[in-house]
Design a protein around this nucleic acid. Structure first.
Lengths: 314, 314
DNA sequence: CCGGCTAATGAGTAATTGCCCATAGCATAG
DNA sequence: CTATGCTATGGGCAATTACTCATTAGCCGG
């Protein structure tokens, strides 16, 4: 363990010498007394471990313009548009960094706030970009259950990752994401602890939501929360996306019945009382983002240029 | 002008694709439709223009340890120690970034504060690392005059650079750094505008000071504020360093008489009422830093490992 | 003490980047 | 219209970095 710490320490030092002081890896090797290859490994370790944070400090005109138009068109409080990386398949690069910056800004506030957190790969990537912080004044509450269908902790429930990075009081939901019946869901929600957490989430000052598609590779199916049959049924009922488990149609209205009767997640905090961020980019997410905007489920958006352009064209 | 903006825009985009999205310069060239060389130029332009900000997010154990010990030994409110770059001659790399981060943190506060700023190469480098910001709520006041001996604006008076980067109300001091006589100094200080600025600086919430050495290559001499003869006289009187023009001895006491009778700078804000940062590193600055600490002129310090080690040994 | 395993190391090499330089484009003054 | 000087461009090459692979050191269980 200690050796691991020392290694990270060296990695940080190598990363510093490389990125801040502008040394070559050869210099670093000499200065740290290791081989050039080892120096290279240390630098790349520092990058891989997320020790190196790069931000571009320039309001790229086109992004700003798109953000303005998104705000006006969809009545948003905050819109952030990051550059697109043409041809990259990643659905997280860029928006994750931007979401992390937004989250960090809130966490740095001295006055206590409550942050509600959804789930998904994009949010997970965002949390991983957060620096280590110590903010005992804040509360972070999960909107979804953390129990996977096989009984283990759901991997993309990100509140644990977050609690690990940021030392604030965290409120997970010891529930399955989708209960086996409406009755079970209601029963679980009546438990005092759960009820208190649900209440807390409704009062969140800021909310960060991922948007899940309900296409062929829907994350809810991939992760085993939904069967193919259930997905097909939802699609027939017009579902185009889900947010913390709640299936919505193209206009952002929740699908009536089906799995929505059994979703154990908290309701999405009101856009009247909370800053509700949607974090998503990419063509696959496009219908979902558009639906969330149309249905006024969110009042803030972090996305990329291509997606923003498509949203404005839609 | 517009072409320049567009170019910086592209530079930012290229920098983003390179550092955040992890593209090769070849990819970027293809994606932006320019040659590889041009892409390389854009990336390096982004770096040169300070659009790319890198920070290492890891508390390097040794630095933290040194910071703790500095705080205890010299009764400091804040101590920050950045890694040393062995063999590098720069007296700014590292501490400039750290000072910029500290300054940025204050500027991001929504409540209005007053920041007092000294002068010098280190501070100038720090200011240049600041991102562009818009903080009309704050006031920034210079502690020193901005008139060089030849009548032009003093180059290392950094308040203009700062006002340029950060849109906040700035209060320069339209004075020479060192007046021609005590009488002239006192007369200038009685002018209503100047008196008001002096009053403002005394009430600063945060103060950032560079520390100037008084050795052979003393910046005050290099910049023509002091003659060699005056320097020699100061040295004979025991002066080891200067802070905003005030010469101090090895115990941090101001030298009595000599140029100190004519220095037109504001007094250093009190460490009782202001957070007073010293920003300096390197063997040349060591006696000055040590003196400032001993004389309790500053209550916070940003320096590097080597200097911190030397300070603790001294 | 010995095999078998894992992690770390260094050599070698391919990929990428930084830089110099000759040249082309372009504006401006004559 | 032409000469002049400036800037941007792409070719070419050297330096630097990333990656693969074989080897070795260290470590554990037998």
């Amino acid at each position: 363990m200690a050796t691991n710490t020392i290694r990270l320490d060296d990695a940080a030092r190598a990363g510093w010498l490389y990125y801040v002081a502008g040394n070559t890896q050869d210099d670093i090797a000499r200065k740290l007394g290791v081989s050039r290859q080892s120096a290279q490994r240390l630098v790349s370790l520092a990058v891989k471990e997320g020790l190196v944070k790069v931000r571009i400090d320039h309001p790229i005109a086109n992004c700003l313009d798109l953000a303005h138009r998104l705000k006006a068109r969809f009545d948003l409080r905050i819109a952030e548009v990051v550059p697109s990386d043409p041809g990259s398949a990643s659905t997280t690069v860029g928006v994750a960094e931007a979401a992390a910056a937004e989250l960090e800004r809130r966490l740095l506030l001295p006055d206590p706030i409550t942050i509600a957190i959804g789930t998904g790969r994009t949010l997970k990537a965002a949390i991983e970009k957060l620096p280590s912080m110590d903010c005992p004044q804040h509360k972070v509450v999960s909107l979804t259950g953390n129990i996977a269908p096989d009984g283990s902790a759901a991997f993309y429930n990100v509140i644990f990752t977050m609690a690990d990075k940021v030392k604030c009081r965290s409120f997970p939901m010891p529930l399955p994401v989708i209960a086996s019946s409406t009755g079970e869901r209601d029963l679980l929600h009546k438990q005092p602890m759960i009820a208190a957490t649900l209440k807390l989430s409704a009062d969140a000052d800021v909310t960060f939501l991922g948007i899940g598609d309900l296409g062929h590779q829907a994350p809810l199916v991939v992760d085993g929360f939904l069967t193919d049959a259930e997905l097909a049924e939802l699609n027939r009922a017009g579902a185009v996306a889900e947010i913390v488990g709640w299936a919505i149609d193209a206009d952002g209205r929740p699908i009536a019945g089906l799995t929505n009767d059994r979703v154990a997640s908290a309701p999405i905090p009101s856009r009247e009382t909370s800053l509700v961020f949607g974090i998503a980019k990419g063509p696959l997410k496009l219908p979902g983002i558009f639906a969330a905007l149309k249905g006024r489920l969110i009042n803030s958006l972090i996305t990329d240029e291509d997606t923003a352009t498509a949203l404005l064209a839609g």
